[in-house]
Design a binder for these strands. Structure first.
Length: 631
RNA sequence: GCCGCCAUAGCUCAGUCGGUAGAGCGGCUGAUUUGUAAUCAGCAGGUCGGGAGUUCGAUCCUCUCUGGCGGCUCCA
């Protein structure tokens, strides 16, 4: 019998050899022990026997498939732990995730002490190196084995008629599972429980308890993961926001951010950045009411689809809703007089506060709030203008996110279960968006059923410091609202036509964008955004006048500059400036006075640079004007 | 909204086995006038998140409300 290795070598082995042995005997590569094997591209246990000629490759933790196998094995270990701690717990399923794994149980609400019990059982198992043993059962034996667990019986019923029914045993714990698994529980010594929470069973709707965790093949790898997590927590935008006095919240206005003076500078700079682009791209800015009567939302469909998330206010016998998005206002502007095809594309931008009654449990710093301002615009276009406009938007997204050095990903979201209009129109709109994405050569993911109730969309996602994805920009191709608002324009053919509306934001909202960006830059803002761009430190009182003079001349150029008087040691003031993440720190003392120069310390560098005031000013202004990322 | 956890000075936290509280940083005042990540000293600052209950007595125990955190759900 012959096996082939990935490097092209071939080897004769006795029939029935275990995959692990076959790998150990000659295919070992760079010393990383495999945790499973790929046989003809299919992941199997190392203990799996090989019966005929195959292509054989090792799977390690470095491989995505190998990582998933380890996480899934860790989930089994958690199930073993909980079943031994809380015997009435019914395991349901325990898949690997992006971060690690979870296992859902049908059980009474868990307590922190339950997790301690789970940890203890897991530790004993890891020390005992309990093997994961695969066994094939008849369907009826399996039904008997899992008779007490309706969830497992349900999964059992899902096993295909030609598929073997297999279980994996770990010590005394048996779980219905296709596998494969790591050889034994010692592989899971780097297991870590992240917590537990209530989830809803997608099939039965019953409340389940989910235990989440992450696992590594060694304790050392777990340690470095935990260290990374600690570092990520330090760049949490909620922490930085309060340290740098950017924004705050009060109990009396949950989810409603206060922008403090320094944070407001960030908002205004973003606005300026976006506004410059809008001017250059043929947009007009408008401002429409914050409240509309119920009838407007009935027209838009929000009353039916979104009412429970809207703030309402009553005036006499009329109910008004605080607008959760800007579309109605723009629609009403378009409809306010007859429109010609010559006006299209009509691009109306609006940066107005929006109010959304988000459920209390979903609020999260700046990234999930109840009042927000989007860099919003509505493009009223003729059908044949859709592609060109969407392509321009993709270009702008690229430019904008590159400026912020943010990685982003696209997601195409299609028709949801509850939608307005006709399926055929949706199909066309979805096909158009997908075609543009495909032709742009960008990577994207498709999320079926995740579109808005009125339009399919391309969403832009960026990640926070803990890797949680957040939606920022969105491009929605809407054929519904224009019809519902009875929008029309007169075409070149003299006939009346309904425009298509592209709803789009690029950065999303200032709130969410800044929340994520603060974590991305860890509070070290690019000079153009930094609330304080330059801080001048006179060594002694006799240098104060020169320091103020420099500050005044920088301020006259529009630079945000402040002077830190010599009430504290120069070392202390340098430290404070560093802690405050000031991009440029200028020290002025006898030496500088004599030379007519400046000692410039650029954020992140311990070295001082000697520059003339003119050189320094030109440098700072240039970095700011070009919106360079680094000082 | 659901499950669990948390709430003590502006911030980060300690503490009281039930007898109303401390530190560091920050703030203020004074001294120091400093050469690139913390000069020294003094002072001020808290009805221990709100309400109710148990108790001779509650910051501590119980209930409840509010807010926050981690998940879930949701996200026009």
């Amino acid at each position: 019998m012959e096996i082939r290795f990935p490097d092209g070598r071939r080897r004769r082995v006795p029939a029935g050899i275990e995959a692990g042995e076959a790998l150990a005997d000659g295919a070992a590569k760079d010393g990383v022990p495999p945790l499973a094997a790929l046989v003809d591209g299919v992941a199997v246990d190392l203990a799996s026997p090989i019966g005929h000629d195959v292509a054989l490759a090792p799977l390690t933790f470095e491989d995505r498939a190998g990582r998933d196998i380890l996480q899934h094995s860790a989930a089994h270990l958690v199930a073993k732990g909980l079943v031994e701690t809380v015997p009435e717990a019914l395991p349901t399923h325990g898949p690997p995730t992006e971060e690690g794994f979870y296992y859902d149980f049908d059980v009474r609400p868990l307590l922190p002490a339950d997790l301690d019990g789970v940890r203890a059982v897991m530790q004993r198992s890891i020390e005992a190196r309990e093997p994961f043993v695969r066994k094939q059962l008849s369907r009826s034996d399996a039904e008997r084995l899992f008779a007490a667990n309706p969830h497992k019986l349900r999964y059992l019923a899902d096993v295909g008629p030609n598929e073997p029914v297999t279980v994996y045993t770990t010590g005394s714990f048996v779980d219905l599972c296709r596998g494969p698994h790591v050889p034994d529980t010692h592989w899971l010594e780097g297991i870590h429980l992240l917590g537990f929470s209530a989830v809803e069973d997608s099939v039965s709707g019953r409340p389940l308890q989910r235990i989440r965790g992450v696992a590594f093949p060694t304790r050392a790898e777990l340690e470095s993961y935990l260290k990374l997590r600690t570092e990520a927590a330090a760049r949490d935008h909620r922490v930085i926001g309060s340290k740098q006095e950017l924004f705050m919240f009060v109990d009396e206005a949950p989810g409603f951010p206060f922008w403090l003076p320094k944070g407001m500078i960030l908002v205004r700079e973003l606005e300026k950045y976006v506004a410059e682009h809008l001017r250059a791209s043929g947009y007009a800015e408008v401002r429409t009411p914050l409240l509309f009567a119920q009838s407007v939302y009935e027209t838009s469909g929000h009353w039916e689809h979104y009412r429970e998330n809207m703030f309402l206010t009553v005036d006499g016998n009329r109910t008004f809703g605080w607008k959760p998005m800007n579309c109605p206002g723009s629609m009403l502007i378009f409809r306010s007089r007859p429109r010609s095809y010559r006006e299209l594309p009509l691009r109306l931008a609006e940066f107005a506060p929006l109010h959304r009654l988000e459920a209390s449990g979903t609020l999260h710093g700046l990234t999930r709030v109840r009042e927000l301002v989007q860099d919003d615009a509505h493009l009223f276009v003729a059908p044949d203008q859709v592609e060109g406009e969407v392509r321009k938007l993709l270009d702008w997204i690229q430019e904008a996110f590159t400026t912020f050095r943010l990685g982003w990903s696209y997601e195409l979201s299609t028709r949801p279960a509850s939608f307005l209009g006709e399926a055929g129109v949706w199909d066309t709109a979805e096909a158009t968006l997908e075609k543009i994405l495909r032709e742009s050569g960008v990577k994207y993911r498709v999320s079926p059923g995740e579109g808005g109730f009125y339009a399919p969309k391309i969403d832009i996602h960026i990640r926070d410091s803990l890797g949680r994805p957040w939606q920022t920009g969105t491009i929605q191709l809407d054929y519904q609202l224009p019809a519902r608002f009875r929008l029309e324009y007169q075409g070149a053919d003299g006939q009346l036509h309904t425009p298509v509306v592209i709803h789009r934001t690029i950065l999303g909202s200032w709130e969410r964008f800044l929340g994520v960006f603060i974590e991305h830059c860890a509070g070290r803002f690019p000079p153009w955004l930094a609330p304080v761009q330059v801080r001048v430190l006179p060594i002694a009182d006799r240098h104060a006048a020169a320091a103020q003079g420099l500050a005044d001349s920088l301020a006259a150029e529009g630079v945000r500059v402040e002077v830190a008087a010599p009430e504290e040691s120069i070392a202390k003031r340098v430290r404070t400036a560093e802690v405050d993440r000031i991009p440029y720190v200028v020290v002025l003392g006898d030496q500088e006075a004599a030379e007519g120069g400046l000692a410039v310390r650029t954020r992140g560098s311990k070295e001082s640079l000697h520059q003339s005031p003119a050189e320094f000013t030109a440098h700072v202004l240039d970095r700011i004007r070009r919106r360079e990322y680094d000082p």
